[in-house]
Amino acid sequence: MTILLLLVPLAVLLLAAAVAAFVWAVRHGQFDDLDTPALAPLLEDAAPPLQRHAD
């Protein structure tokens, strides 16, 4: 069972990575709005945001 000595720390590292990713996402506002983004796939993006720099 010595493989556990490798696998368990590996699992803990992955866990740390997952928590870090989650913290990053929350801090960057990814969870601030849980309703509006649900609509995004239904919309044809009429005006890509870049357009406003053109006019």
Binding site: D33, L34, D35, L39, A40, A47, P49
Partner: peptide, 25 residues
């Protein structure tokens, strides 16, 4: 959510707007 999308799109068209986030919730 559609209202929020409309607000985002409408304001992003204005000159001088850097970012808009409308949250219907």
């Amino acid at each position: 959510a559609a209202c929020a999308w409309l607000v985002d799109q409408a304001l992003m068209r204005e000159n001088g707007v850097l970012d808009v986030t409308a949250n219907a919730a």
